Computed example of a mutant assay.
Amino acid sequence: MLRLAEDVHAEVVAHALAGLPNEACGLLAGPVCDDRVTRFFPVRNAAESSQIYRLDDAEFLQVERTADAENLALVAVMHSHTHTSAYPSPTDVRDATAFDPFGALQYVIVSLKDPEPALRCYRILDGVITEVAVTVEG
Score class of each variant (00 low, 15 high):
125 L>P: 03
85 S>M: 08
20 L>M: 14
101 P>D: 06
39 R>Q: 15
115 P>S: 12
116 E>A: 14
26 G>S: 08
135 T>H: 12
27 L>C: 05
100 D>T: 01
103 G>L: 04
104 A>K: 09
11 E>C: 12
40 F>L: 11
42 P>K: 08
28 L>V: 09
101 P>H: 14
28 L>E: 08
127 G>N: 04
122 Y>K: 05
96 A>P: 02
46 A>W: 14
71 N>I: 12
69 A>P: 01
54 R>A: 15
93 V>C: 00
104 A>C: 09
49 S>F: 04
24 A>F: 06
35 D>A: 05
102 F>P: 01
118 A>K: 09
84 T>I: 02
25 C>H: 11
136 V>E: 01
14 A>H: 09
117 P>E: 11
130 T>S: 15
17 L>F: 02
48 E>F: 10
113 K>F: 02
109 I>D: 00
60 F>N: 09
124 I>T: 00
26 G>P: 03
14 A>F: 13
105 L>S: 07
8 V>H: 11
127 G>H: 02
5 A>R: 15
130 T>D: 14
127 G>K: 02
68 D>P: 01
66 T>E: 13
85 S>D: 10
44 R>F: 09
27 L>G: 07
104 A>L: 08
37 V>K: 14
43 V>N: 07
73 A>F: 15
18 A>S: 12
120 R>S: 02
104 A>E: 06
130 T>F: 04
86 A>H: 00
91 T>H: 09
31 P>K: 09
84 T>W: 06
72 L>N: 11
49 S>G: 06
48 E>W: 08
108 V>S: 00
3 R>C: 12
59 E>H: 15
132 V>M: 05
65 R>A: 13
137 E>L: 06
76 A>M: 12
75 V>D: 04
68 D>L: 15
137 E>R: 10
120 R>W: 01
62 Q>P: 02
60 F>E: 07
57 D>R: 12
4 L>F: 06
105 L>E: 11
48 E>L: 14
93 V>A: 04
7 D>C: 03
30 G>W: 10
93 V>F: 04
68 D>W: 11
46 A>V: 09
69 A>H: 06
66 T>L: 13
128 V>Q: 13
79 H>Q: 02
90 P>G: 07
1 M>H: 11
122 Y>P: 01
98 A>I: 03
132 V>D: 09
39 R>V: 08
134 V>P: 08
14 A>L: 11
43 V>Y: 07
96 A>Y: 03
12 V>Q: 01
41 F>N: 04
46 A>I: 03
51 Q>D: 10
50 S>D: 13
4 L>M: 08
41 F>P: 10
39 R>E: 11
4 L>P: 01
136 V>K: 06
120 R>C: 02
3 R>M: 10
53 Y>I: 13
52 I>W: 04
67 A>C: 07
64 E>G: 07
89 S>K: 15
25 C>G: 04
101 P>A: 05
86 A>W: 00
118 A>S: 11
16 A>R: 02
134 V>K: 14
134 V>C: 13
14 A>M: 01
46 A>L: 03
130 T>K: 15
78 M>K: 05
37 V>M: 12
44 R>V: 03
43 V>A: 10
96 A>R: 02
71 N>G: 07
74 L>M: 14
71 N>V: 13
71 N>Q: 14
27 L>D: 05
